[in-house]
């Protein structure tokens, strides 16, 4: 029974991960691509690590997996925030701003 739940978690996590990978090719500009990458960072990490925890005997291995999960959940938002902030300071515009620039130019 536990194995079935764990399999469901792993497969749904893999699906979300693929979704993010498709998203970083499909989305039109940089800031939206960060959102797509953050899907793989948050939910697919949670699901896959929980799926693996269900396969352990709930011993030291499970604690190590929990450490990986907590660490990733703390660091991946920090990394994407630093990325977005440095892109913003580097002068990258968001999609809405580029569009409004074009409108102003057309008028």
């Amino acid at each position: 029974m536990i194995e079935i739940i764990s399999s469901v978690f792993l497969i749904v996590g893999a699906f979300f991960s693929l979704t993010g990978a498709v998203g970083i090719f499909k989305f039109p500009d940089f800031f939206t691509r960060v959102h797509a990458a953050s899907v793989t960072d948050s939910i697919s990490t949670i699901l896959i690590i929980f799926g693996l925890i269900l396969r352990t005997d709930f011993d030291l291995v499970a604690v190590k997996l929990l450490f990986i999960l907590i660490f990733m959940l703390l660091t991946s938002p920090t990394a994407s925030h630093a990325l977005a902030k440095s892109a913003r300071h580097g002068g990258l515009l968001t999609l809405a701003e580029t569009r409004s620039d074009k409108k102003v130019g057309d008028d």
Binding site: S17, I24, A37, D41, T45, L83
Partner: peptide, 13 residues
Amino acid sequence: YDRILGVNMFGTK
């Protein structure tokens, strides 16, 4: 920045 995003995703995966 797109390159860094790809490399970051590669690392976490």
